[in-house]
Amino acid sequence: MEVRTIKVFTTVDNINLHTQVVDMSMTYGQQFGPTYLDGADVTKIKPHNSHEGKTFYVLPNDDTLRVEAFEYYHTTDPSFLGRYMSALNHTKKWKYPQVNGLTSIKWADNNCYLATALLTLQQIELKFNPPALQDAYYRARAGEAANFCALILAYCNKTVGELGDVRETMSYLFQHANLDSCKRVLNVVCKTCGQQQTTLKGVEAVMYMGTLSYEQFKKGVQIPCTCGKQATKYLVQQESPFVMMSAPPAQYELKHGTFTCASEYTGNYQCGHYKHITSKETLYCIDGALLTKSSEYKGPITDVFYKENSYTTTIK
């Protein structure tokens, strides 16, 4: 009895394709271990004539594949690729409408935090270190965002349907971005203890939790000093293409032309909904596939993004 075979390709990165001759009487799992086709788990399936010449994702289970996976995804987590594939199996079914010149995501599976993050990423200057993220990001900007969303979920250790947080998501993504040249110098002034300067680099240099107003941050924000008295913390120097200011959701007025974009969060910790506000020729609110415009805006804002380049204080 002759062994019926077909020729397929296996890959971990969709760049390096490895030619395989597979036995049609055995499952993919018996031949390769966990195997995925377009995100779908085909591990328990036997090869079919229609699979001839198709590319299958496999887990990096030998040295060659491990090197290829690390170079593309910059992670050695053995569960990463499987999590990416199972997320992709959902995100490829989502709709990605162009809204006001940006790629958004039609609401499904509690994905409003991903839509808000995706919209924000198209408006701030950011370059990702893992080629996987950078490639998928370019495709997302062009309207094909399924891979990018699935990668975000995998890097953030999230599953489809789980509630997510924009600030946490951005923080994970910033860790995989090139923020080497970003720098922030802060000064804390206390009447009792004097003053202390701190220099922050990388992710810490672009994120701040405690106030939404970048102007206020430049002037000074009140913080408790270690001595128990009130101290003032203010920005001395900022070198970065953008800054992200966050605070627990509270009524906040966004003035046209003073910011790049913002995240609105309605609801409580267990259950809520994100919308995205962007400042173009007027203010726009993007909620999944829905767009509304207004000249002014007041609502429960939790993150505001500002364009920056270089700032030095005039406070002496």
Rank of each mutant, 00 (worst) to 15 (best):
Q122Y: 06
E52C: 12
K280N: 06
F242T: 02
S25N: 12
Y113H: 05
N147S: 12
L151P: 05
F56G: 01
P249H: 02
E281M: 00
R66I: 11
V304R: 07
L186A: 05
S25D: 15
V8E: 08
E215N: 04
S181A: 12
F305R: 00
P97C: 12
K307P: 14
E162S: 10
L235Y: 03
V221H: 05
A247Q: 04
N187V: 10
Y269H: 12
T120S: 12
M245W: 00
L151G: 02
Q175V: 02
L133S: 03
N187Q: 12
I223N: 05
Y36P: 00
A145P: 11
L173W: 03
K54H: 12
A145E: 02
Y155G: 05
V243K: 04
T10E: 05
H176E: 02
G202T: 01
V99H: 12
T226F: 10
F217S: 02
G202H: 02
V185D: 05
K280G: 14
Y274K: 03
S181Y: 09
Y57E: 04
Q230I: 15
T55N: 14
E296N: 10
D38H: 11
K218N: 07
R4D: 10
K44H: 14
E71T: 09
T120C: 13
T302I: 05
T226C: 10
V12H: 07
L119M: 07
C285A: 06
T76G: 12
V221K: 01
L254C: 02
A142T: 13
H273L: 01
N309K: 13
D41R: 09
N16A: 11
Y234T: 09
Q222M: 11
R4C: 15
S104Y: 00
N268H: 07
S279F: 01
E71D: 14
F305Y: 00
C261P: 03
H18L: 07
T192Y: 10
F128P: 08
T76H: 14
L153A: 01
Q20D: 08
E296C: 13
Q175G: 11
L119R: 06
E215F: 05
S294K: 10
K7S: 13
Q122S: 06
I6G: 05
Y311I: 09
E239H: 09
G53A: 13
F259P: 03
K201Y: 13
H256P: 13
E68V: 06
G210V: 05
S181R: 13
A115C: 10
Y214I: 12
F174S: 04
V221G: 04
E2G: 06
I315E: 15
P34V: 12
E2L: 11
I45Q: 14
G194M: 07
N111A: 00
S310V: 15
P249C: 03
K293T: 12
A146R: 05
T120E: 02
H48W: 14
N14Q: 11
R66Y: 10
